[in-house]
């Protein structure tokens, strides 16, 4: 009980040291920062040795046993374990200027091997599967996301029309009554759009969700086209693409901020419940 309290107190005090950074950089934060960097360096040294070097090199080569059984190197001959072991050692040639160039060989094998192994799965998962999913029928199919898509498009009509009337047509400068009228008109147009789109979706004539998906995808691909200047048709498509990207980033930002807030709640709960027993 006492030991638990001591360690909880240490954790709580270090938490407060880190949070003191919110005020400004100070010796308490500096202490916590150096402690975590130092501890993590030692911790990872041990983790790397016991998780990688020991089971993959030391035990197979020296025929050591683990749990009563000799450790094999991935079901192959023991001497095969020497190859990655030697490649790892070659990295240290950088400390000897005359043969430092040898250290580039293991790096080359490491990077090249990973790139080669990654090509097939990446081509399958990130290109072909996505392409197949994007080739969705645009009409004559049930649209499970119709309500949300139509509402979003109706809202988009309202926002764009409001911006166009108030800012581009300078209605905002013509008085409050005109401005309210423009907003109401935009709202009516947005709602009208929503009703029309809903009627089309209900009849199964078009799938607005799939159309939106395809337009967004083509626009985004156009944005990441580097061989031509973004002008004309390509420029228009790229502009649509960047709008889709920003909408996506906004949603992702909001989602992640919520998860970070939950982390904060978890930490405050630790301080108030586990440490101070106030809750």
């Amino acid at each position: 009980m006492t030991l638990t309290f001591i360690w909880t107190t240490v954790g709580a005090l270090l938490t407060l040291c880190v949070y003191s950074f919110l005020y400004k950089d100070n010796p308490f934060y500096k202490f916590a920062e150096h402690l975590v960097v130092g501890v993590s360096a030692g911790y990872y040294l041990v983790i790397y040795y016991f998780n990688f070097i020991d089971p993959n090199v030391v035990r197979p080569v020296f025929q050591l046993e683990l749990g009563g059984e000799a450790v094999a190197f991935g079901g192959t001959e023991w001497w095969m374990a020497l190859i990655p072991g030697l490649l790892g050692l070659l990295l240290y040639t950088r400390f000897f200027p005359k043969i430092a160039w040898v250290g580039r060989w293991p790096l080359g094998i490491y990077v090249g091997g990973y790139a080669g192994l990654g090509i097939s799965p990446v081509m399958q998962a990130r290109v072909i599967d996505q392409m197949q999913a994007a080739s969705s029928p645009l009409a004559g199919v049930p649209d499970p996301f119709a309500a949300a898509t139509n509402a979003a498009l109706g809202f988009a009509i309202f926002v764009v029309l409001t911006y166009f009337l108030l800012v581009k047509r300078h209605i905002v400068a013509r008085g409050i009554a005109m401005s309210i009228g423009a907003v109401v008109l935009s709202a009516v147009a947005g709602y009208g759009g929503y009703v029309v789109l809903s009627a089309l979706s209900a009849q199964g004539v078009v799938s607005m969700t799939n159309i939106l998906l395809v337009v967004g995808l083509l626009g985004t691909l156009a944005y990441f086209f580097f061989s031509m200047r973004h002008a004309g048709l390509l420029g228009g498509l790229a502009r649509i693409g960047i709008i889709f990207l920003m909408v996506g980033f906004g949603a992702s930002f909001g989602y992640t901020v919520m998860s970070r807030i939950s982390l904060l709640i978890g930490r405050v709960s630790f301080l108030l419940t586990d440490w101070l027993h106030l809750i």
Partner: peptide, 9 residues
């Protein structure tokens, strides 16, 4: 540091 948040700190 290899530790993500130690590095960030």
């Amino acid at each position: 540091s290899d530790a993500q948040f130690a590095f960030a700190g």
